[in-house]
Write a protein that binds this DNA or RNA. Structure first.
Length: 374
DNA sequence: AATTTAGGCAACCGCTCCTCT
DNA sequence: AAGAGGAGCGGTTGCCTAAAT
């Protein structure tokens, strides 16, 4: 729109911040709040543009920022949310308390993306690359279709969740936030364009829908259209998927007892190495195999069981993290990894699965309102 | 020990969206 | 309704450090 960037002003400093600058910014915001970022540098006595100040504050100086290694749970959340939301780092960050979008973005680009690539999965589309599955006849196509459907369904759920959210907004008042004198940091739309700032981000609705499915379906099953009780039914004729109330005929890959491998600080016990991704392709095939049958119309009829996007994403995330777990275990002298994916599968129960999603939901539920926005 | 290479992260840049006038 | 300005997001860059040679 023809507006000149604020940083074009000559004489403004760029580059790394000095401790003195940090102190000035910190002191000013603590006393006055940031107010208008554009006006802040002059008031705070900084030779920086407002944009730079905002970035420094949100990514580094904010007191509620958690630094250090990402826990396995955080990784899992990122992977799943990225599968759902794509590169919407701010939306993802909403669900990771004390993590900044920039940090998550960097972590994705430097760690998680590489893991996906090593697994033969396109980190952008989350589609399994064909070569990763080429050893199994017909699977690559199925996997690609499956992934595509998962993505499509994700997008659809997103759209529907937005409708749900908007309908909620019409009936519910969220006036409490406006009483906060502190400037709002996350007052923008985090999910879709054109929507008003959500009281709760999209993922909450989506995952709540999933949660509803978990809570009401029978063991291992998933019902996408199940209402959470306080929201509209998400069942939609537009869905590419149909879900039954019958048990899922498969067990997801991997134990997913990620918590077992946390240290007390919530950090990873060990960083991944080259070795631990060996055999990942086989595990990926396990996932594909597992979900393939329910996705074919014939087998749906035959087995009377379906798999939803959640299971795909879950297996997907588990796959990433489980391999690290396996490696961790072997590093500690365990001999669990014998190359047989079935062993891992058997370790994942319905309760664990449910608990896993509950954990994600707890995280989701707590982050938008609980996380200190300022 | 010196140099090169790779990885990680902080910060910048350009764009889009939202709000206000 | 349209334009200007502010804020935030996502992609990218560049610097610093650790690892490898």
């Amino acid at each position: 729109m023809g507006r000149s960037p604020c940083c074009e002003k000559v004489g403004l400093k760029k580059g790394p911040w000095t401790p003195e600058e940090d102190q000035k910014l910190l002191a000013y915001i603590e006393e006055h709040g940031h107010g208008s970022w554009r006006a802040l540098p002059a008031k705070a006595g900084l030779q920086r543009c407002g944009k730079s100040c905002r970035l420094r504050w949100t990514n580094y100086l904010r007191p509620d920022i958690k630094r250090g290694k990402f826990s396995l749970q955080e990784e899992q959340t990122i992977i799943q949310l990225h599968a759902l939301l794509g590169n919407r780092w701010s939306a993802i960050a909403t669900h990771l308390p004390k993590r900044t979008d920039n940090e998550i973005k960097n972590y994705w680009n430097t760690h998680l993306k590489k893991r996906l690539a090593k697994m033969g999965i396109d980190p952008v589309t989350h589609k399994p690359k064909s070569d990763a599955l080429s050893s199994v006849d017909g699977q690559s196509k199925t996997a690609a279709n499956l992934s595509h459907m998962a993505q499509w369904e994700s997008a659809r759920l997103e759209a529907e969740a937005r409708l749900v959210r908007e309908s909620k907004l019409k009936s519910t008042s969220f006036g409490s936030e406006s009483s906060d004198p502190a400037p709002q940091l996350n007052n923008k739309t985090v999910v879709t364009t054109g929507a008003p700032p959500p009281a709760q981000p999209l993922c909450l609705d989506v995952l709540k829908a999933w949660q509803g499915g978990w809570s009401k379906s029978t063991k291992g099953g998933f019902i996408a259209g199940t209402s959470t009780g306080n929201g509209p039914d998400l069942e939609s004729p537009t869905s590419t998927l149909s879900f039954s109330e019958n048990p899922l005929p498969i067990q997801p890959v991997g134990p997913t007892n990620a918590v077992e491998y946390y240290d007390n600080e919530g950090g990873m016990v060990k960083e991944e190495g080259e070795e631990e991704w060996k055999g990942v392709t086989a595990s990926l095939q396990d996932v594909v195999f597992a979900v393939e049958t329910p996705w074919s119309p014939e087998s749906r009829k035959a087995e009377n069981g379906h798999v939803g996007v959640s299971n795909f994403m879950e297996g997907f995330a588990d796959l990433l993290l489980t391999n690290a777990d396996d490696h961790n275990e072997s590093e500690r002298g365990g001999d669990s990894d014998n190359g047989d994916g079935n062993d891992r599968s058997e370790g994942f129960s319905y309760e664990e699965n449910k608990n896993y999603w509950n954990n994600i939901l707890n995280l989701v539920n707590s982050s938008p309102s609980d996380s200190p926005v300022f």
